[in-house]
Design a protein around this nucleic acid. Structure first.
Length: 284
DNA sequence: AGAACGTCTCGGCCGC
DNA sequence: TGCGGCCGAGACGTTC
């Protein structure tokens, strides 16, 4: 599923196409967790004008001009994809949004002239959308997350990797309250770059190692964003295109293949029920 | 059959 | 004995 670089890619596409537009229709194809209390969800959104689309951790945030917002989490297989006017809903689609540039008024009637269609689909239905009525409530949701790795200084990120001393570093990286937005792929990739084994306990890391890891987290995320993220299985961006970072992965999904640095076979273990990949020679 | 890019909840264990 | 912290297991649909 999308991690920070993939969500960031989608965020940029949504922001560039939806900023300033108004939602004119929301169609639900099935009930589900992604659209709690369907009618109210639709009623809350229709007529809202988007001031910007932002990202926090792996959440997408549509900010509306009236201070309310819509948050969306793609989890493993959620997707926002722009579609054409004659698009036929597919099996796992659940919501279709229609937008107009500016709602034209004539004799007190809103003239519907849709210019954009966006579909939300989710094969596994883990993802969700939630309408947030005011900025205070939104702030509450955001407060659950640790610092944004591309906004915080590396030193600040490194400091968050000190405790609890007995926690495995991989487990800490996956915890969104520690650092926001890092998921399974980029945790493994950053640890390889920093030459640190995923099973190391935080208490065993030197200050130098923590700082190196923090900087490698920032680097790998930036590099992936440049290439539109990583598509392992399902991920596509809002244009329906795959990310191109897959070929640059050094360990994730490369069990048995040679380490690009030393030629040793990449190992796969399980930590915190997540598959974890590392080079037994390069990572101490 | 087993695993999949995320996260939540629950139960058990450890240590103060 | 009580409680917080932490960890692992299981759950959430579906696909390949």
């Amino acid at each position: 599923m999308p991690e920070l670089p993939e969500v960031e890619t989608i965020k940029r596409q949504l922001d560039s196409k939806l900023r300033g537009k108004t939602i004119t229709a929301v169609t639900l194809f099935r009930s589900g967790r992604e659209a709690p209390r369907g009618k109210r969800f639709v009623a809350a959104l229709v007529g809202k004008k988007i001031s910007s689309v932002e990202r926090r951790a792996k959440l997408l945030v549509w900010r509306f001009t009236d201070g309310s917002s819509l948050i969306a989490h793609l989890k493993m297989t959620g997707r926002f994809v722009f579609v054409g006017k004659d698009y036929k809903p597919q099996k796992h689609d659940s919501v279709l949004f229609e937008f107009v540039e500016t709602p034209a008024m004539r004799s007190g009637q809103v003239i519907h002239a849709p210019t954009k269609f966006l579909v939300w689909s989710d094969v596994r239905k883990f993802g969700f959308m939630r309408y947030i009525p005011n900025s205070a409530e939104l702030a509450g949701v955001m407060a659950c997350y640790g610092p944004e790795p591309l906004e915080a200084r590396a030193e600040e990120l490194a400091d968050r990797l000190k405790t609890p001393k007995t926690r495995m570093v991989k487990t800490a990286l996956l915890n969104q309250a520690v650092i926001a937005g890092v998921g399974n792929i980029y945790a493994d990739e950053a640890l390889h770059r920093a030459h640190i084994r995923p099973s190391r306990r935080l208490g065993s890391l030197t200050e130098k190692e923590r700082l190196a890891l923090a900087k490698d987290i920032q680097k790998v995320l930036c590099e992936s964003i440049e290439l539109g993220g990583t598509s392992v299985n399902d991920y596509v961006d809002a244009r329906g295109e795959k990310g191109k970072f897959l070929d640059l992965l050094r360990v994730y999904g490369r069990k048995g293949e040679k380490c690009r640095d030393c030629g040793t076979a990449i190992k796969r273990i399980v930590i915190g029920q997540r598959s974890t990949h590392y080079c037994p020679k390069c990572q101490k």
